[in-house]
Amino acid sequence: MAIVEFRNVSRVYGNGEYEVKALDSVNLTLEEGKFIVILGPSGAGKSTLLNLLGGLDSPTDGQIFVEGRDIAGLTGDALAEYRASSVGFVFQFYNLIPTLTVKENVALVKEIARDALDPERMLAEVGLSDHLNQFPAQLSGGEQQRVSIARALCKNPKILLCDEPTGALDSETGVLVLKLLLSMAKNYGKTIVIVTHNQNIAKMADTVVRVKNGKIRSCEAQEHPLAAEEVEW
């Protein structure tokens, strides 16, 4: 069943002489519960795609349906509500609040999400029960990314959006983070969308979307995705 549908979505930055088409009449359908990787070189438009899906940005043209609801026209509070309840973000540089402890960073989402899960349980599941009262700066990069995953899942969103989640990590830690991401998503039945330029991650995906020059070049389902440990990094 489709959870996301892009219909003729365009995103243009600037105007006139300085106009840049980041996305050009994109049509794309993503299935629920799948692990989707959006692949493409720098400047291809993959992050724009993710930002539009995450409600961080609005398209210049077209419609974006998430669970049958068009989010393209949402603004202000309605868009904030969408971000709070429907999507969870995992960033390359974690984006944790430095002045909140590990537990508080995750518990933070309880203030905005209606069906939030128990923060301590989520942190236990990502293996950080012993670090609850530490601050982000006291953790390693991998640990910080695990906090970020726990935070994203704690909101109990339908879709998990990850922008280069292993981009700032060494390959060993990256594999661990990806494994965790996949197992958590599976356990909680989430759709995962990862944006990356790392071809290897694509080997793990159920669906691989290739983007170039603001257009979808291909959208292919993989019948036998590899497990993280099977991928040669």
Partner: peptide, 16 residues
């Protein structure tokens, strides 16, 4: 700014 942007991404409203 970055922290505020993170809160906004998480779904905090401008008012909050």
């Amino acid at each position: 700014y970055r922290e505020l942007a993170t809160l906004k991404v998480l779904g905090f409203r401008d008012r909050q």
